[in-house]
């Protein structure tokens, strides 16, 4: 049997589970069904550009950007510190970071609900200390917190992977040429870790911008994000055509942002990381 033949099961798999569903989504987005009438239309797309839906899109992108920036600001130092620690402790630290990820995503988000509730653990602690309780639950802040908590490892891991791969002798060379620790970081470590940063940003931004669980549980459903909108169209409203159109728009946005990110990553190292 030729080598080539081994590929057929995968081609079959991809066709059934990737190409066909995508094609169906595309078909739904370009058609309409109204009672007995059905046909081809672009109205699903034009409808999305009404202000009410555009606002949802903008809010989603806004929250996802904020979460991504916070993840980057938290994740880079964490990755840097772990990469600098003794090799014996390094794996333990990474493991500690990964263990929460082994638990169910929903469960972890529910856990935050009980922590943030009006009579939750955090507010109990605050009142027992004589401070006024906070109203975090069902705010943008809670949604961002949920995103940062859930997606932070996706920022830490790619940056960490790039950082430990940086040749130690490059750092020594920079020191040797007169650069102190700060300048060495700025001129050597940081630029060399950019592929990891780019892949971290992509990996945090994409799930953040499409999430609907976090915004529903921690946002209390009052902040509709693009993910919620799609979910509603399919589950509650039953307008599969409009839902599909939004999904297509979403996919385009992600594709465009990924290609922009990849342009920064000349060597394509970041893409190879995942």
């Amino acid at each position: 049997m030729k080598r080539k033949n081994y590929a057929y099961p995968y081609v079959f798999w991809m066709t059934i589970f990737v190409v066909l569903p995508l094609f169906l989504v595309l078909v739904y987005s370009l058609t309409f069904k109204n009672g007995l009438k059905a046909g081809i239309t672009l109205s699903n797309f034009t409808r999305f550009f009404e202000p009410i839906y555009l606002n949802v899109l903008l809010r989603s992108i806004n929250l996802a950007l904020i979460s991504t920036i916070i993840c980057l600001l938290l994740g880079y130092p964490i990755a840097y510190i772990i990469s600098r620690t003794n090799i014996k402790h390094r794996n333990t630290l990474i493991l500690l970071f990964l263990i929460p990820m082994w638990m169910n995503f929903l469960l972890r988000t529910y856990a935050w609900m009980t922590l943030l509730e009006k009579n939750g653990l955090i507010n109990k602690l605050l009142t027992s200390l004589g401070l006024s309780p906070l109203n975090i639950m069902y705010t943008n802040g809670a949604v961002v917190l949920g995103m940062v908590y859930n997606f932070l490892p996706f920022m830490v891991l790619p940056i960490y992977t790039v950082l430990i791969k940086i040749d130690k002798s490059l750092i020594e060379a920079a020191n040797d040429l007169g650069a102190n620790k700060f300048k060495t970081f700025l001129k050597v470590t940081l630029p060399l870790s950019l592929p990891g940063v780019i892949s971290g940003i992509t990996m945090v931004f994409m799930p953040s911008v499409t999430t609907f669980v976090i915004s529903r549980l921690l946002g209390g459903g009052q902040f509709t994000l693009i993910g919620n909108l799609i979910e509603q169209q399919f589950i509650n409203v039953g307008d599969w055509n409009f839902g599909s159109a939004i999904s297509i728009v979403m996919m385009l946005i992600i594709l465009i942002s990924m290609s922009i990110m990849n342009r920064f990553d000349k060597d394509k190292e970041g893409v190879n990381l995942w």
Binding site: D167, S169, L170, E172, A173, A174, N175, D176, L177, G178, A179, N180, V188, P191, L192
Partner: peptide, 20 residues
Amino acid sequence: LPPYQRKVNTVFQKYALFPH
């Protein structure tokens, strides 16, 4: 004294040139 304050420079075994 740290390396960056010494008046010596090094040619490293595997060159350690900055790839970026």
